[in-house]
């Protein structure tokens, strides 16, 4: 059983929801991310989504774009992100790591080389924002052959047909983008999310993580309970951005926020 499947099964048995922080690898500096990953696990993270910096992150808002720019300024890359993940795995064998990014760095490496490298780095899932199922066939097959879960997005305007398609091609979990827009945008309409989740649930048995717009502990709790987990990205990266002169403080603030979310989600 994959590390992701095992994690969601374990959570389900204990009636808990997954807390899934997203950070951009190498933001604000390459040496900051590894200790941050360990600290997030200690704060209660169940899965870590590790952002691969890209020069043109079209589906992200300004907060994550700036995180990408900071990381790229330090020459962070897909290769170095994989090395970082492997480093993390040396001391943590249980927390799944999901790479999240755009397809071009993967194309530049080559699909097969990437799949091999991801396997060596013991990556658990790969979410490629701009690789919908229509274009993902080759890459997803290479990943699945190496027991790496290809993770796909669902959006508020995804049709029932689309949901069924994602259920067929995806594994690990489905990531429901809870609002129309980019990362870090607007505020959530909980009733809308609930209605959509009912439709999604009716068409898939995969766990559903919900992200986009999750900013505080209360929202994390509400959102997580509509699905199987909550993804928190921009809210964490804002802490990094607010403390560029003091990364240690950024780490502490991220830990505090995640602890509060964990507590709210478990209560």
């Amino acid at each position: 059983m994959s590390r992701l499947a095992a994690t969601f099964e374990q959570l389900s048995k204990t009636g808990r929801k997954a807390l899934i922080p997203f950070v951009s690898a190498g933001d604000p500096r390459p040496d900051f991310t590894l200790p941050l990953m360990h600290a997030m696990v200690e704060a209660g993270a169940d899965v870590i989504e590790l952002g691969v910096p890209f020069s043109d992150p079209m589906a992200d808002g300004p907060v994550i774009q700036r995180a990408s720019e900071r990381a790229l300024a330090h020459k962070m890359s897909l290769r170095r992100t994989l090395a970082l993940a492997l480093e993390f795995r040396r001391t943590n064998q249980h927390t799944p790591v999901v790479l999240m990014g755009y397809v071009n760095p993967i194309e530049a490496m080559g699909y097969e080389d990437f799949a091999n490298a991801a396997q060596r780095a013991e990556i658990d899932g790969v979410l490629t924002v701009d690789l919908p199922p229509e274009e993902a066939e080759e890459c997803a097959a290479l990943l699945k052959a190496r027991d790496i879960d290809p993770i796909f997005l669902l959006a508020p305007n995804s049709s029932e047909e689309r949901i069924k398609k994602m259920d067929a091609v995806g594994s690990g979990y489905l990531y429901y983008v809870s609002l129309k827009g980019v990362t870090g945008a607007g505020h959530l309409d909980i009733a809308d999310v609930e209605a959509k989740l009912n439709q999604i649930r009716a068409n898939t048995r995969l766990p559903v993580a919900i992200g986009f717009g999750v900013k505080d502990a209360q929202t994390a709790k509400t959102i997580a309970h509509l699905g199987d987990g909550a993804v928190i990205g921009s809210a964490l990266i804002s802490k990094i951005e607010a403390n560029l002169d003091d990364p240690e403080r950024a780490k502490n603030e991220i830990v505090e926020l995640l602890k509060a979310m964990r507590e709210a989600m478990d209560s």
């Binding site: 079209m58 589906a59 919908p132 229509e134 274009e135 796909f152 959006a155 305007n157 689309r162």
Partner: peptide
């Protein structure tokens, strides 16, 4: 019909843009 010119073209977009 899916917008491919040989290996080029296609629809490489995030899910939210697929319906529009």
């Amino acid at each position: 019909e899916r917008g491919h010119f040989g290996p080029y073209g296609g629809m490489f977009v995030a899910e939210t843009l697929i319906p529009p």
